[in-house]
Simulated assay, not measured.
Amino acid sequence: MNTPTYLIDSSIFVFRAWFALPETITCRDGHPANAAHGFVRFVHTLLQSERPARIAFAFDESRGTSYRHALYPAYKANRPPAPEELKRQFGWCREFVNALGLAHVSSPTFEADDLIGTLAARERQEGRAVVLVTGDKDLSQLVHEDDLWWDPHRSQRLNPQGIEKRLGVRPDQVADQLALAGDKVDNIPGIPGVGMATAARLLRRTDTLEALLEDIPAIAHMPIRGAKRLMGLVDTHRDTVQLARQLTGIHCEADLPAGLNLERRRPDGARLGDLMDQLALPPSRRFDWDRI
């Protein structure tokens, strides 16, 4: 097995820095730069600790335009639009990754999760395991044997067995679990009164959502508290669950840029220097990127 490929769910780390660091951190022009500063530090820590030979950063640009919105217009409608100050910082973060010589991808049609899923499938075809760097439980559905789901901020590294212990289902059942329970974060409907734990109990007895929906009357005979009521709920909300399943599954055949190379390239020192000046990074944050 080759060394693993690191696939970064970039947006979550930009948002974490945006909320964690004060807006008094500004660029040379006085605009907030807290998220960009935090992201630079995150990338430095990641590269220094892991020394990945292959790595890619996935960014979201499909807000309101992804194929999921076409299926369900209310998808993620509960989220307020990103302020201009944050959009500007996302641009700096992408520019920073590019200047470092690291691959990055985005799409107006597919979300970062789909791009990561597509990259993970491609890497596995070439005999490589992947490390999914994220804090999003949705991406745990992509974890195969030898892969890891890793949230560096919480020091959690989960293999398939760790995911099953945490969520109560195997990685390949996570999308089914989310379809049954719904996902408030993404405004995905589920079955009222059915949470992740109950969804896990159902799937442990039927294995797949498809099998569960093919024999709904059997739910009444399961050794689950309130089984008859649960059967009625599943039957009533069957169409909702089937729609939700189209939203919770990660699309692993997204379009990728031609010739995309995940191997690290040498940083562009001049571009990095200009960007560090623009962000007004202090000397303690101006790392020697050639040595990492």
Results as ranks from 00 to 15, higher is better:
133 V>R: 06
14 V>S: 01
60 D>C: 04
111 E>S: 06
59 F>T: 04
196 M>N: 12
237 H>S: 01
169 V>L: 08
185 V>I: 11
22 P>L: 12
30 G>P: 10
213 L>C: 10
104 H>G: 14
131 V>L: 05
131 V>S: 07
2 N>V: 06
51 R>M: 01
233 L>T: 00
284 S>W: 00
103 A>V: 05
147 D>Y: 05
41 R>H: 07
266 R>G: 05
154 R>C: 04
103 A>C: 02
86 L>D: 13
27 C>P: 03
231 M>W: 01
274 D>G: 13
2 N>D: 08
111 E>I: 01
97 V>Y: 13
31 H>C: 07
219 I>R: 08
97 V>F: 15
160 P>H: 05
248 T>L: 09
222 M>Y: 15
77 A>T: 04
141 Q>S: 12
89 Q>A: 09
282 P>N: 10
229 R>G: 15
235 D>W: 02
255 D>L: 13
220 A>Q: 08
163 I>N: 12
31 H>Y: 09
195 G>C: 01
43 V>S: 11
53 A>T: 15
144 H>D: 04
14 V>L: 02
107 S>H: 06
183 D>M: 04
47 L>S: 02
226 G>I: 09
278 Q>N: 02
216 I>R: 15
8 I>G: 05
12 I>N: 14
16 R>P: 02
14 V>G: 03
259 G>K: 15
67 Y>L: 08
254 A>Q: 11
79 R>Q: 02
231 M>L: 00
273 G>L: 08
35 A>M: 12
172 D>Y: 13
11 S>Q: 14
30 G>R: 09
235 D>V: 00
172 D>C: 13
102 L>W: 02
251 H>F: 12
130 V>P: 01
176 D>C: 07
28 R>N: 01
214 E>G: 06
244 A>T: 05
10 S>L: 08
235 D>A: 14
